[in-house]
Design a protein around this nucleic acid. Structure first.
Lengths: 249, 249
DNA sequence: ATCTTCAGATTGTTCAACAATCCTTCGATT
DNA sequence: AATCGAAGGATTGTTGAACAATCTGAAGAT
């Protein structure tokens, strides 16, 4: 869904005939100076592709042809190209020179690698602790997960889980760590659509998150870090099992 | 230096008149199948800019005009643009919409941020230990630093120091962590040209590296990690001092 | 002195062209 | 029949030109 929505407002039918058209994507703020960050077309293409990748509309391994995407989104091939460079730097797609761009697919080694990064940054952030607001965000993610579990909404449960781990990293207050974590989570999302894990899978995580959060709130940072580490190890094993089963298609 | 070398071999004088010219950048290997990764022009532009950034030829805050760079390197504007997207994703340049691309400059907050990332990934990698070969690489970097110090080569000393920390992260055997560390070190290189620190500055680091390496080699991973953490804290403080002095231009 | 207007420069984006490369198909050879 | 190699088509890589949108800075008006 949302696959063929044009990114440009739809006034681009015959681009050259209109001389000095009315401003298209100006969003001109008459009074203030603050421009609220109007994303460029290339960025919006990247955003759209990121969204479709996260939704599973573009499955891992799929080839992304430049001209097709350009037509579908109503932009030029060069703009798609810029978006591809960005997505490739985030490891969401892989560029094979002269062959094309493909949706990234996590192999067994990649899973371990991703979890190595997660262990590094999540444990580090947790061990350093955070402000009360930061911890409140972690707690909020735990409660969000509980609600999702009560509503038997697996999708929401997965989202809450990502919020939980995102909140842990956010405790460090580091834009760079947040950005790295965001990319890692995006990579995992890419993979998760292959295996819709059962509810018990997540239920287990839910309890772990609660325990970790409690340890954090009581100031037992080292214990919280150890718990998180164990959690990540188990999560990696779980994912590998799922991968071993689902990876034989 | 090496600022105006064209990236394309120089057969690009009149690009349209020649129909079916001889292969320009083919590097065709007659026998084998293995193509040794011929970098695209955009990648080479990014490489060249990265190099000039690391060398300090493009100082922080400097504006990089698309057409100028395109002319200097003998490539098209669109290609430069692709390179800019990549460099921006590495935080080596900053893009101001409709205003241009500027060489990134680390502010005080950025320094702390960079060190937060380093603490996370270096300590994590060190704590997990590594194979004998990995540790040998760490040791080699220490010796490299000693030689550079003996030769009073500050440049080489800085390089050896980066090798040391790179080798520590490489112990984790994680391509993603290596890539992150590479970017972080590139960011720091960008900054280091502002302050050519004195020899004693590095001498101190040299002893720390030796101590950390010894702890690692004797299997005292936790102690090595603690030492590294302390080292990074001190290094951050040092850098902030230097920044406070030199940043007043 | 402050505001507006205007021109110049640069970025953002598109388009069209072509070269280089890859993949496939189809013969030709052994 | 199997293998090899040569067209052919499709797609990527790269360029150059064009133009709209935006920013910058300077000249002019209030």
């Amino acid at each position: 869904m949302a696959s063929s929505d044009p990114l440009v407002p739809s006034s681009r039918v015959s681009p050259r005939v209109s001389t000095t058209t009315t401003p298209d994507r100006g969003t001109r703020v008459a009074s203030g100076r603050l421009r609220v960050a109007v994303p460029s077309v290339a960025e919006r293409v990247a955003d759209e592709l990121r969204l479709q990748l996260a939704e599973g509309a573009l499955p891992p391994g799929m080839r992304l042809t430049e001209s097709t995407i350009a037509e579908d989104l109503g932009v030029s091939r060069n703009t798609v190209r810029e978006a591809f460079v960005e997505l490739a730097s985030e490891r969401l797609v892989v560029r094979h020179p002269n062959r094309g761009v493909f949706v990234a697919s996590l192999e067994a080694g990649d899973i371990h690698d991703v979890y190595t990064v997660r262990r590094a940054i999540e444990v580090s952030a947790l061990r350093a602790g955070g402000s009360p607001e930061d911890m409140a965000a972690v707690r909020a993610a735990v409660e969000e997960g509980k609600r999702a579990a009560a509503a038997r909404d697996d999708e929401a449960l997965g989202t809450a889980n990502q919020h939980f781990h995102g909140a842990i990293v956010a405790m460090a207050g580091s834009p760079r760590l947040n950005s790295i974590m965001g990319q890692v989570l995006a990579e995992m999302r890419l993979f998760f659509h292959k295996a819709t894990v059962d509810a018990q899978f997540y239920q287990h995580y839910l309890k772990d998150n609660e325990t970790i959060c409690l340890a954090l709130e009581s100031g037992e940072l080292d214990r919280a870090a150890d718990l998180l580490l164990a959690y990540l190890d188990r999560s990696e094993d779980n994912l590998n099992e799922v991968h071993g089963e689902a990876g034989t298609d």
